[in-house]
Design a protein around this nucleic acid. Structure first.
Length: 397
RNA sequence: GCGCCGAUCGGAUAGCGGCUAUUCCAGUGGACUGUAAAUCCACGGCCCAAUGGGCAUCGGGGGUUCGAGUCCCUCUCGGCGCACCA
């Protein structure tokens, strides 16, 4: 397939500085992109959760740009590898998932990433693959053959394994196999390049090794930085509560971006938006609140469209800046005998009646006009609106 | 198989047989704000006819004891070491 070799467009892709490492080298990769023939590049994601967050999304921007240049992009579901669990992110072994859990996780993914990756393009759609297709068919013999390409020492070099050795923490044999599996994905798909986060370089390198040995081919590894708070080094991730998930409603998505710490503004701008680079200074000069709002708007628009993004921004300003009540408020029905506390527990708005009492005592419950509810036995009327903390709202009907 | 160690809140962690089970992080609510950070205050199992009271709680079960997270037995789960060089 013919590709676009416009040097400016290619340079632009790298201009955001999100690419931290290219193996064997960036120059060589760019030369390959300039050659005029398409490359096959993939990203593999293990569906260990139901939602993708902005840290995943930023990789997809990059791939979509390559697709638009005419390159072949594969989105690989690591449905097989998800079950084993990549040991990279934690010191302890990750819990293994069942086939059904993985299926359930995957079901909504395409819908979530569609706004970025084009799966419907007539000439060059992004292809979807599943690594269970080939990994589940390997025989013990095949696996032994594959593993003979690596030494135990090489595996132990992976810093997290080294750390575990040092701390006398367990390393399970199947965890050693993970890089092998990911490496074999490259062979099975016969790709020219793999895109990954920097945390995945070790695994991607295993693929490079296998491609060289088995296919006599130099696979490129393009590693993108992880979206992290530059001040604290804290990664955007589900486990530490900093993940921003794109399957949220537009309002929630907007809000959760606004709630991110200020130092995240630049990484978000570079990784998760495609606001032109020349606007960067002006954007930041607007002040952190405005800058974040711009970024939040841009991201919500990409996933939910212009209209809903506008609504989300308005709702946000109205609710939090002005202390109002959002429009699409949850309504619960009250019928006679039941107490407010019971009702709220039933509707799972508060976890227990004791918790409800605590909230009342702490002054966390307000009516629409900001008067505090001080009596836990408060009887609402139909139409009463309760504000619970800053962001829970309920209308009694 | 043998030996040693461990299991306490979402995570980490303390707890000579004796009062209300510790501390840190995260969390929730409040104040100041920009649903930012920093800071400060409060909260922290569940339930009730609440200035009070009841029931639960340290992996499961049993026991010793006036009294057990703590001691003993047993089971489950997990870890490390040994079991070839030694």
């Amino acid at each position: 397939m013919k590709t676009i070799t416009d040097k400016n467009r290619i340079d632009e892709i790298f201009a955001r500085g999100t690419v931290v490492e290219v193996l064997p080298s960036k120059e060589e990769f760019i030369r390959r992109l300039m050659s005029g023939t398409s490359i096959r590049i993939y990203i593999g994601v293990d569906p260990t959760g139901v939602a993708i967050h902005l840290g995943h999304a930023k990789n997809l921007f990059f791939l979509e740009e390559l697709r638009q240049l005419g390159h072949e992009v594969i989105f690989l579901f690591g449905d097989f590898t998800a079950r084993i669990g990549d040991p990279s992110d934690k010191k302890a072994t990750r819990k293994q998932l069942s086939v059904d859990e993985v299926k359930a996780n995957m079901s909504g993914w395409i819908e979530q990433i569609k706004p970025i990756l084009n799966f419907d393009d007539k000439d060059n759609p992004v292809k979807i693959m599943y690594n269970s297709t080939w990994l589940s068919k390997l025989t013990f013999e095949d696996i032994l053959e594959l593993s003979s390409n690596f030494t135990v020492q090489q595996m132990l070099e992976r810093d997290m394994f080294a750390k575990r050795m040092k701390e006398n923490m367990p390393i399970h044999l199947h965890e050693f196999m993970y890089p092998l599996m990911q490496g074999y994905d490259s062979v099975a798909m016969d790709v020219d390049a793999e895109l990954c986060g920097t945390d995945q370089i070790f695994n991607a390198m295993a693929g490079r090794t296998l491609m060289r040995r088995l296919k006599n081919k130099e696979k490129f590894v393009i590693a993108l930085n992880l979206v992290a708070n530059p001040k604290t080094g804290e990664l955007m991730s589900k486990s530490n509560g900093t993940g921003v998930f794109v399957n949220a409603t537009p309002n929630e998505l907007f809000g959760s971006i606004m709630a991110l710490p200020d130092p995240m503004i630049e990484p978000l701008f570079l990784n998760c938006t495609r606001i032109p680079m020349q606007d960067k200074e002006a954007l930041i000069a607007q002040g952190p609140r405005e800058a974040k709002a711009r970024i939040a708007f841009d991201i919500v628009r990409r996933f939910h469209g212009e209209e809903l993004a506008k609504v989300a921004e308005q709702t946000f300003n109205n609710t939090f800046t002005k202390g109002g009540v959002p429009e699409d408020i949850q309504e619960i029905h009250i019928d006679g005998a039941i107490s407010l506390a019971d009702l709220l527990v039933q509707a799972k708005i508060v976890p227990s009646k004791t918790e409800w009492r605590r909230l009342v005592e702490a002054g966390g419950i307000k009516l629409e006009d900001d008067t505090k509810v001080t009596d836990p036995n408060f009887k609402p009327e139909k139409g009463t609106i309760l504000k619970i903390g800053k962001r829970r709202f309920v209308k009694i009907v």
